[in-house]
């Protein structure tokens, strides 16, 4: 992510330190993670200490300090999804993408996370990719779903 784009985002929020979280969210949304250089630029422009940015960036799960893939896969392993076979879905996705929960693959295509409930237990096992919910997933179906993302 280049410096000009970061400056644009900061200017959009009038360079107001009160918008720190919004600025970070915008960078995260565009870049999928918060590179150190970006945080340093934000600290410099908004005049907020780095300790504060670090505190916020590590506090919220919405932020990532390590590179994240372009597509976020969330696999529900909550009770309902678990009894409906979420662990087998998870195993298949791990096999297809080659990554474990919390990791991202080498060409930054996918990031995999497990979550504990997505609030639609009747659709279990649920897999959510980039905010789109795929319900009643069978291990055999996962390859078809993942194929649509690149």
């Amino acid at each position: 992510m280049d410096k000009d784009r970061i400056d644009q985002i900061i200017d959009k929020h009038n360079c107001d330190p009160g918008y720190l979280i919004q600025v970070l969210l915008d960078i995260q949304a565009e870049n999928n993670w918060l590179p150190r250089e970006a945080l340093e630029r934000v600290a410099e422009r908004l005049q907020v200490p780095m300790t504060r940015i670090q505190h916020i960036a590590t506090f919220y799960k919405a932020f990532s300090l390590v590179p994240k893939g372009r597509h976020q896969i969330h696999i529900c392993v909550g009770t309902a999804c678990h009894v409906r076979g979420a662990s087998r879905v998870l195993d298949t996705v791990e096999g297809l993408t080659g990554i474990k929960p919390g990791e991202s693959d080498l060409d930054l295509k996918f990031s995999l996370e497990t979550v504990n409930c997505l609030g639609c237990c009747a659709l279990g096992p649920v897999v959510e990719i980039d905010g789109k919910t795929h319900g009643k997933m069978a291990p055999a179906q996962t390859a078809d779903v993942l194929k649509n993302y690149d």
């Binding site: 200490p49 780095m50 300790t51 504060r52 670090q54 505190h55 590590t58 506090f59």
Partner: peptide
């Protein structure tokens, strides 16, 4: 100086110095 701050949250919260400062 803001050389030291908190990172993370909950049971993993801890203090951390900014190396450059």
């Amino acid at each position: 100086k803001n050389a030291v701050g908190f990172v993370d949250r909950g049971i993993r919260k801890e203090i951390c110095f900014i190396p450059e400062i």
